[in-house]
Design a protein around this nucleic acid. Structure first.
Length: 288
DNA sequence: AACTCGTACAACCGCGCTGGT
DNA sequence: TACCAGCGCGGTTGTACGAGT
């Protein structure tokens, strides 16, 4: 059972808008304002359906629209927002003044998709194509000619983590407000909430764990009495996040911290856990 | 010059959600 | 509570146009 058509199709024009139709629509909206799209065509003397008028106005005729090419900054912002929101074009458009969801959607499909593919990034998951191809089973792999082992838990990381890693926290906090107040997409029914509680307790982490040999210079000074020093670099499966250990430069950085008691450098404070026991990520308290 | 193909983008369509009755 | 109109969103289609052959 389909819903009834939004207008009488037999007497409506379709296809490209003429200059005259545009002028009529602009004049009507200037005089009466937006809204009540269903009755607008008749009132404005247009042989168009209301939806068509709305679309034409929003996507093309609105005076605050920014025409012209997207800037590099806009490109990058769209990519960032898409990695967080997916195909929520209207939400993305809300962060780009003067751009419409339709415009961004088209631009994404024709330009940015290709751009990301050229960078070796999957436009859907925003992860490296190599990673997706070579490591589909979440199994440990060893890079050729390298002593670095990568252990990947392939699943999307939480938005909160992504924000932290991307440094988008401030920008996104406003966006979240917008999402929660304006959009029903995050309103969950009980079933979804209980499912969510479960996944919060047992999160699907996307942690690419790199284990590399100790930095040569520092090894002499910082080796533990018990022997081998292990340096964890935790990368979160995001673009440019797989930086190699540089604890020789900054011993207090995340992932490499200093034990306060005896001044011994401990370089395996992985996610705040000073342990060489088996790491169970489920025991981690997730940030709210 | 004519044709084909690919690209860009405007417009359409179907569906889900919301608010009013 | 159920129904319906209206709106908005995201996916898809249609078409104009330029490049290549």
């Amino acid at each position: 059972m389909g819903r009834s058509p939004c207008c009488e199709k037999a007497h409506t024009n379709k296809g490209a808008w003429t200059k005259e139709e545009d002028d009529r629509l602009i004049a009507y909206i200037k005089a009466h304002g937006e809204g009540c799209w269903r009755s607008l065509p008749k009132a404005a003397g247009l042989l168009r359906c209301g939806k068509s008028c709305r679309l034409r106005w929003i996507n093309y005729l609105r005076p605050d629209l920014k025409r012209g090419n997207f800037t590099e900054e806009e490109d990058e912002l769209i990519i960032k927002l898409h990695s967080l929101l997916g195909n929520k074009w209207s939400l993305i458009a809300g962060r780009l003044p003067g751009r419409t969801d339709n415009e961004i959607k088209n631009y994404w499909n024709t330009h940015i998709k290709r751009k990301l593919l050229n960078r070796g990034i999957d436009p859907v998951t925003h992860r490296s194509l190599n990673e997706v191809v070579s490591n589909p089973e979440s199994s440990p792999t060893t890079t050729p000619n390298s002593t670095t082992t990568t252990i990947s838990f392939s699943a999307p990381i939480s938005i909160a983590k992504k924000e932290e890693v991307l440094g988008l926290k401030d920008e996104i906090s406003g966006l979240k407000d917008e999402i929660f107040t304006n959009n029903h997409m995050l309103i969950e029914d009980e079933q979804q909430q209980s499912r969510r509680k479960f996944t919060e307790r047992c999160p699907d982490l996307n942690l690419d764990l790199r284990i590399s040999p100790p930095c040569q210079q520092q090894q002499q000074n910082t080796e533990l009495k018990t022997g081998t020093r292990i340096c964890f670099t935790c990368s979160l499966g995001l673009e440019n996040s797989q930086q190699d250990c540089n604890c020789s430069q900054n011993i207090n950085m995340v992932g490499c911290s200093t034990s306060s008691n005896n001044g011994t450098n401990i370089c395996y404070d992985f996610l705040g856990l000073r342990t060489n026991a088996v790491f169970d990520y489920r025991s981690l308290e997730m940030m709210k």
